[in-house]
Every structure is written in structure tokens, then in C-alpha cells.
Design a binder for these strands. Structure first.
Length: 256
DNA sequence: AGGCGTGTTCTAAT
DNA sequence: TATTAGAACACGCC
């Protein structure tokens, strides 16, 4: 269940481990939801070196130069690993020269990769386009709960259920606030909280787990954390269902 | 042992 | 038409 924070870490670490490595072969597991065939991958990529790994929303992009890109979405349960030998079930395996294969597995087979996908036009939560003014304009158009809006991958890319709670607590906005009722000043606070919570979390995980390419660290979360009874400022943590997702919040957050 | 959790997409309703 | 609500997916985990 990786969100933007985890993916930023994975991106850096994948780049560190595979940049400039030559791709020999891509193997596709049975039952994987992939449009391109092994042959398509071979034609497009074999012998090419990985140039960079990028991220937009919850998708990773492996850039092999010559405009050849593989996108990867882990969905809920996709996991990356670098085993010495291929496991019996996987979605896709990238065999690089002189190093362990990069394997994407997913027991649910919902994780997806594609070859040269069309660009996802959504505004990424960490991008420069995601300004207070932009967020204000988006929220003005909606009358659903603010948490639903900031988790909507069609509106803003990267934020999932867990970080949404952390961000809304930081901004002191109640998750069920109706998006278009939130005063501009508070929306601006929310935009700042998105960036600061995400960036601070990246830093925390990098300190404690510098090399991970899978799994998610959640133990530092201050409200979306079933081990905690109170927020750092002493507010009792409550829970509710918002947009059919479990939501943690405190009365320190104002409902608009 | 039986819900819960999770991101996205799809359908249906407003 | 555009927006919104809710179901569905699938299964390891507690």
C-alpha cells in the first residue's frame, strides 16, 4: 500500500541500484495484466541501460533512453524485491546484467506495468503546479468531504488514505469538512501541509530505512496510527469512515 | 475465523 | 453533463 512518500524512497533506491545497468530481458508472469508482450519489451528495451527512475502520482517510471519508458504501479499489494533467483509467481521480472533481477510480485495481480504509457496528466502533490491557489480552485468545485478530494487520483496525485489523515491533522482541518466550505486561508494551510508532511515523512523514513524498495513504514504517524491514543498536542484520536475508508482525526481539527 | 484494509476503476444515481 | 457515492477487486493479516 505504498503512497507518495514510500514511492519517493523506492525511486531513489532503485536508481541507486540499477542506474546504468544493462537490461537483458523482461519476463512476464502468468496472469499479469500487461498489454505489451515479452517480445514487445525485448524489441524496445533489450541491451538498453537504465537512465533514471522517476515518479508521478503513485506510478514509477523506468527510463531507458530513446524515449523508451516502463511504468509501474504497485496498486495495493505490489512488492519489489531483488532475489537471487526468480520466485515461482510474479508479475514481471527485469533481468539486468551483472546484478540480481528486479522482481515485481503481487498476490492479487493488480499491480501493473506498461511500456511507453501515455502521460498521466494529473497534478502531482509534490509538483510546482500544486500551489495554494491551485488547490483552492480545485476544492471550490467540490462538495464532497475534503479527505475524499485530496485522495482522488484524478484530482491530485500521490496522496492515499494514511497520509491524508496526517496532512489534515497538520492543517487542523476535519476530514469530513465539505471541500468548498473551507476558507481560502485554511486551504492555503492545507496546501502547505501536503508538502511539509510528505517531505518530512520522506526524511524520517530515509533516516530509519535508507535502502528499502518495498514495504511501508508507518510507525511515526501521529494520528493514522492505531497504537496512538492521542495526538502530539494531546487531542484524543477518534475514528470514522470517510469515503468508505478508515479515518483517524481529533477534535483539534475544525469542521467546515 | 471472519472482517478489515487498500488504490483504482467502473457503474449507477443525482 | 458533470459530479458524487458506492461497489468491486482478492486475500494476508490480525
Amino acid at each position: 500500500m505504498p503512497e507518495i512518500v514510500d514511492l519517493e524512497i523506492f525511486k531513489k533506491n532503485l536508481e541507486k541500484r540499477f542506474k546504468n545497468k544493462k537490461l537483458q530481458k523482461v519476463e512476464i508472469g502468468s496472469g499479469a495484466k500487461i498489454e505489451a508482450s515479452e517480445k514487445d519489451f525485448e524489441k524496445a528495451l533489450s541491451g538498453k541501460k537504465l537512465k533514471s527512475v522517476d515518479r508521478k502520482a503513485k506510478e514509477l517510471y523506468f527510463n531507458f533512453g530513446d524515449d523508451q519508458v516502463v511504468s509501474m504501479h504497485l496498486m495495493l499489494h505490489g512488492q519489489l524485491s531483488t532475489p537471487e533467483t526468480l520466485p515461482k509467481a510474479f508479475v514481471a521480472a527485469f533481468l539486468f546484467e551483472g546484478t540480481e533481477p528486479l522482481v515485481l510480485s503481487d498476490y492479487q495481480k493488480a499491480a501493473k506495468i506498461s511500456l511507453n504509457p501515455k502521460e498521466n496528466m494529473v497534478v502531482d502533490a509534490l509538483s510546482d503546479e500544486m500551489t495554494p491557489e491551485w488547490l483552492e480552485a480545485q476544492l471550490k468545485k467540490r462538495r464532497s468531504p475534503v479527505k475524499t478530494v485530496i485522495c482522488d487520483p484524478k484530482i491530485i496525485g500521490g496522496i492515499g488514505n494514511a497520509y491524508a489523515d496526517e496532512i489534515l491533522w497538520e492543517a487542523k482541518i476535519h476530514p469530513e469538512s465539505i471541500a468548498n466550505q473551507i476558507p481560502a486561508k485554511e486551504v492555503h494551510k492545507l496546501a502547505k501541509a501536503i508538502k511539509s508532511v510528505v517531505n518530512d515523512s520522506i526524511e524520517k523514513i530515509r533516516e530509519s530505512n535508507p535502502d528499502i524498495i518495498s514495504g511501508e513504514i508507518r510507525d511515526f504517524m501521529v494520528v493514522h496510527n492505531h497504537k496512538r491514543k492521542t495526538s502530539p498536542t494531546g487531542g484524543q484520536i477518534k475514528n470514522a469512515t470517510v469515503g468508505s475508508r478508515k479515518t483517524y482525526y481529533t477534535d483539534e481539527q475544525i469542521k467546515y
